[in-house]
Design a protein around this nucleic acid. Sequence first.
DNA 1: TTGTAAGCGTTATCAT
DNA 2: ATGATAACGCTTACAA
Lengths: 335, 335
Amino acid sequence: MKDVAKHADVSVSTVSYVLNNSGPVGASRRARVIEAVRALDYTPNESARNLKRRSASTIGLVVPDLANQFFALVTEGVERAAAERDVLVVLCAPEATERPISHHAKLLRSQRLDGVVYLSGIGTSPSLILELAQSGPVVLVDERISGFDLPAVVSDGRLGAREVASYVLGKGHKRLAIIGGPEALWTAEQRLAGYREAIAAAGLDREAVPELVGDYRMESGFSLAQQALSVPPKQRPTALLCANDLMAIGALEYCKSAGIRVPEDVSIAGFDDVPIASLLTPRLTTVSQPAREMGYQAATVLFEMLGEENNQPAHEPFPVTLQIRDSVAAPTSEK
Amino acid sequence: MKDVAKHADVSVSTVSYVLNNSGPVGASRRARVIEAVRALDYTPNESARNLKRRSASTIGLVVPDLANQFFALVTEGVERAAAERDVLVVLCAPEATERPISHHAKLLRSQRLDGVVYLSGIGTSPSLILELAQSGPVVLVDERISGFDLPAVVSDGRLGAREVASYVLGKGHKRLAIIGGPEALWTAEQRLAGYREAIAAAGLDREAVPELVGDYRMESGFSLAQQALSVPPKQRPTALLCANDLMAIGALEYCKSAGIRVPEDVSIAGFDDVPIASLLTPRLTTVSQPAREMGYQAATVLFEMLGEENNQPAHEPFPVTLQIRDSVAAPTSEK
DNA sequence: TTGTAAGCGTTATCAT
DNA sequence: ATGATAACGCTTACAA
């Protein structure tokens, strides 16, 4: 920068002024500066800027599992919002790196990160998240900590769950089983609540619907489906409501391996509408959430927090859409 | 930091010494310093460090499409290698952000990034990549620029392609079609070369095997499969060699939509072994690459470049593994 | 062994 | 409208 100043025969402050439009500069001098910048192929040193401005123009994105396409889509949304503001996004994959959340807290305090978008996904202990939130601005995606009201971007999972469940029930199923998500997770609770509402509305006895607790991973879908379906035929559920697509896929895999036909013998519904849901055989009936938009929104909320000291705008839950496909059919009226 | 020094009643340099083990410090003073650090909950300001050290402890990862699980896995590998060195990984998704590569070049020069791992995937013009490489250390993954010998981490795609093609030919297929990748891409060339070798080895006429050019995306797999199969039955290929899984999936989708049975009517083979390959019906025969390891290795190579000024170690191509599954069978000897 | 002080490249305050 | 100059928080000769 000194070089630029010299080359343009002005002072460094003038250079700074034109670079940031932060001060009045005479036309001729301004021209000389931009000319010098070009001539020397000058690029401002961002480290120095960051030091001065006490901000890194960088946010963190904590994502449990990139191979989960739902997360990948959210990530794209975050990326886009950040790019619009010339902010960098650093990936934090606790799963892959085996780092505790406290590490991210440290990143926040050390100014390497201005804020964090947190995709808990599979469930982190609330206290850890609170620790993180103490260290700097945090926005949760598709998650909420009961009791504390951290900024969060969510979709209307309860409604979505009610809708799929109603749809399934509308097909005439009388014996269902629910393969739910981890107990501590807000989304899991919401979806479970939605299922229950629909079941109650259909006049079914809630006691008659087993509620299994999974962990949102394929394997648990597999083993819980096995568990749910390993009962005498007359009690066997004719439909499985899975709280996310991964578990639904696991359930599907189990059925394949056990020779149980879907949807003829048992219907399966998922949640999330990951890109592969429609590529499976049968195509998975599920509920889609606007993943990219949610990521975009989350980042936007974060930037609002970073910008103004003020508001923490309440955002509506995002709408969800029932995706009716082949994995759900009417129960075959055997016996 | 000044506060810490005061609290411990030492000078700032002493604090710095203990924080970095960069100087000899007496036991008692050292103890006082770490005590003070704890007491004040001090976290070093990384921006200042970066300014001083002229490095950002941050690398960039350019990835065209996160929803592609192969890339997601590579990303996990990169993350892990970086985390081991306390280096941050910033995500650059040109697709999502619509930013030209020159932008990444600027990031390199402005010290926001120390280096870049580049996953071209779908193909970037070589000249742009070279521009990037001029601005700082770059490691390519699964890609190579012909003529220039940039550091790159690759797998033995040619071998893999030969193996899968041999396997298919071994099943007795006489009429094949190749759905290849973008012409400029090194991986696409390699795989094509491998296919050709196997075809020649089987004594088939190369002219008799149509080589279609796709773009590695599902849609092109769909439409090229349509094109390849829309010929009189006696000339119709009985097997499709797809240069990646996404196109294979597209081909599969086309067959489903057209009522063509796989593998009974036509066999399909892919490349990459993305996680969903084994979840499809039929399960996709494909070639797996150690994606996570490749990412890890790429980051490692980059760090070597950053560390020592010296070597640019030649790395062996990673091994590939043929995954035999259901989507390939012997041709039905109709007619 | 420990402290002093000179930068690192910017921005911003203040005279001019 | 412009230019010195003092921070920003840290590292590192160099001096003591």
